[in-house]
Design a protein around this nucleic acid. Structure first.
Lengths: 237, 237
DNA sequence: TCCCCAAAGTCGTCTGATGACTTTTGCATT
DNA sequence: AATGCAAAAGTCATCAGACGACTTTGGGGA
């Protein structure tokens, strides 16, 4: 086993066995090097790996801390890498999104409060009022995130958030057909919000699934290649 | 921006823009250090981060290669960290599993071939025939993985595989109540396989959802703490 | 033609030193 | 006594150089 693996599994073991708990500071590098029998280089690489996976968080000058180890923290670590996936795989992700967005919409319909319905409709109105595709995309994200939050499962909300971020890269709303798409999209949103407001899980789920399926069809039809990451488009926010 | 971040985002950018494609070998460390303006330490840490996330794969003596960038590769990177999550989060994951296992079972029912049905039932018979909880757990895993494979969405299969691996750590079959549970579990499996054999998506989905829900109830009831990772139990395989 | 080995290329590890940042400590001032 | 500030300690971040381990390549000999 290489030194990096030794350090990685050693640290993971300390966390798995509870010797290092969530939020706790791990021993300084020099101590860990001695205990794990590796030098600082490999140890730091192992810590970086755990950091990339959302398990620990180094703070310059202070120490390295174990994260809260919530599933949503770990899932969020997929964000930066999902953006690298080529298009074919994205379509597989859409199938999962369809199922899960429908599920959270149904759960949201069963759990929503009056204030939450209020929030959803005000987001829709903002969306319909703006002409800026960037702002529209950002509001779209917040609308779906709010429904996922109401659904009551933070892990699921985090997972869907990662999936949506990958989709948003393609910025379909900035295409020539954008306005038309947005009109259809707005109508879908109203259907979803209405289903939730009516406490009708079936209606909400159906509307959500149809909405995702529609987005998928658009993407399939145009398949615009993403030429740049971080390009100032609808990916903002 | 720190040197590690500079290197990490620099590399990610090279992949995102297509300068480095799937399967391709990235430039040697010394070249990258010069281009990115960092020394070897931080560069190696950045490469390790991408490696932990399933984006690149270093090969000693040969070079570092970009992975195939399939979603299932990236999702698999969650395997080692999901095992660290405390129990409360696990229950949120069960809700997702319930929805997705039902979905793949339905899709499997629609897509299955005669040979695949054969495989499922032979796995069930092996499962029913063995007394070894470890072997039973391994066969259980293969049974569910096979259904997910038949479902036709590798990304979804990979995601479910990660979720199941986390659950298997608890080894409910080794409890005193184990044999009883296994009997119920076997019956569930037959229901699922029958639904798939009959090309009845509704039946298959219902059986799958009930099966997952049952497992979740067992876990909720006993909540045995996991004291060791890699303990020789049902986690084998 | 085939086999073997030497050399080059590349990643892996160690060591030592220095810089940057945070937290703590202790002292001087109010 | 309370407060504020500066020094010091602790910790992570980075650089540089050297050597080891492994893989691949290519040439030389059988």
């Amino acid at each position: 086993m290489s030194a990096v693996e030794k350090a990685f599994h050693g640290l993971r073991h300390m966390i798995a066995t509870g010797r290092l708990g969530p939020g706790e500071r791990i021993p300084p590098e020099s101590d860990l090097c001695e205990e794990l029998g590796v030098s600082r280089g490999p140890l730091r690489e192992a810590v970086r790996m755990l950091s990339a996976l959302g398990v620990v968080e180094p703070r310059h000058g202070s120490g390295t801390y174990v994260s809260q180890l919530r599933p949503e923290d770990v899932i969020r670590s997929l964000l930066l890498t999902f953006e690298l996936l080529p298009l074919p795989g994205l379509l597989e992700i859409y199938e999962i999104r369809r199922v899960l967005e429908a599920h959270v919409a149904a759960k949201a319909a069963a759990r929503r409060s009056a204030e939450e319905v209020e929030t959803l409709f005000s987001l829709i109105e903002e969306m319909e009022a703006t002409d800026d595709p960037t702002k529209a995309s950002e509001l779209d994200h917040r609308f779906h995130a709010e429904i996922a939050r109401i659904g009551g499962n933070p892990t699921l909300a985090s997972l869907l958030s990662v999936f949506r971020a990958r989709s948003r890269q393609y910025q379909v709303f900035t295409l020539p057909e954008g306005p038309e798409m947005r009109q259809k999209s707005d109508a879908d949103h109203r259907l979803m919000a209405t289903g939730i407001a009516d406490r009708d899980p079936g209606a909400a789920a159906g509307a959500a699934e149809a909405h995702v399926a529609q987005t998928e069809r658009w993407l399939r039809a145009f398949m615009p290649p993403v030429e740049e990451e971080g390009v100032p488009g609808t990916a903002a926010g």
